[in-house]
Write a protein that binds this DNA or RNA. Structure first.
Lengths: 168, 168
DNA sequence: TTAAACTTTCAAAATATATTGAAAAATAAA
DNA sequence: TTTATTTTTCAATATATTTTGAAAGTTTAA
């Protein structure tokens, strides 16, 4: 397979994966494009390559910057902005984990906390089941949270190395 | 907080979380409802409680069964079907991990495999960057895959225990 | 059989999400 | 300042996803 076809396929696959994980497809595709581009690209180039509008490109790039996956770059003597993606997959994974924790896990833990204070009659099966489920989900979420905490602090080698030492 | 309000809040929160992770909101809500219900419910009861149509309830329940999260139950002398969710959070997590791996990670690994065979000129920066990115993403995906493999085989205690032993 | 109870299907409608594109705003050189 | 360039905004539009509901299908009991 030649490069242009391979690039196209990767951009498509990354976009599809993103949409399966609740990430806007275009955002995943812009990220994919930047991941395989050696140099920073202009909005214009991104619009061109992915056939998307200026507005879409602009918003998507801001989102990617908000996720900490892309950075602006300016070049000396140039008016326009260039965009560049961190290509270190460990950084990417950590950044995504960090943001999703903040946006989704933290609020969920808060809700579970609130819900665990529900009042009711211990003899009521509906009450007992509710409490048990909430408690168990809370424990799982807590474990996930602690693991993410560790992951965020860790170096890549150490993290996977430790996992594999244990998981044989 | 009293039980009815708490139930409502949980169903809402679970639905929202689902939609952030690419799961149809209604599907997550039906799952939530069954998770906090001590007994198996009929389609009728689910429709009523969540104010959804028969068609929607039926399709959603089939999906949940397809994900291995819900089971049909029949009661002696009854015509209609009852639906029941496994309440063990470890089973739920494993089931979801297993299905998503099959549906998303496996196909992605296959694509990355194909793409790593791209032909090109080692002197071309676009080629070099592409190859490096694909290789690195492939390595990360491989590590995730191995970790999931271990998780799927493991008992809950062993899995988290091992994580924490290492992660202090 | 026949009929009642229940489940499934799926085209149409409703809703939600993403995208466009042109105007307005911001920025920086002349 | 004025002008040219670039970025941002956002109402309108397009697209994608979800939901409905009624008809068709299936199952069981009489």
């Amino acid at each position: 397979m030649e490069l242009p076809e391979a690039r196209q396929k990767f951009i498509e696959a990354w976009g599809k994966l993103g949409s399966e994980w609740g990430v806007n497809r275009t955002m995943a595709q812009v990220h994919a494009l930047l991941l395989i581009s050696p140099d920073a690209l202009t909005t214009e180039e991104i619009m061109e390559e992915l056939s998307i509008s200026r507005g879409n490109a602009n918003m998507t790039l801001r989102d990617l910057i908000g996720w900490g996956l892309v950075e602006k770059q300016h070049k000396a003597g140039e008016r326009k902005e260039y965009f560049f993606a961190d290509k270190n997959t460990w950084n990417i994974a950590r950044q995504v984990a960090k943001e999703r924790r903040k946006r989704e896990l933290d609020p969920m833990l808060k809700v579970l906390q609130e819900l665990s204070a529900v009042k009711g009659d211990e003899k009521n099966p509906a009450y007992k089941t509710f409490k048990t489920s909430i408690t168990n989900i809370g424990k799982l979420a807590g474990n996930v949270n602690k693991t993410l905490e560790t992951m965020l602090k860790a170096e890549e080698n150490w993290f996977w190395g430790s996992l594999f030492k244990i998981f044989k």
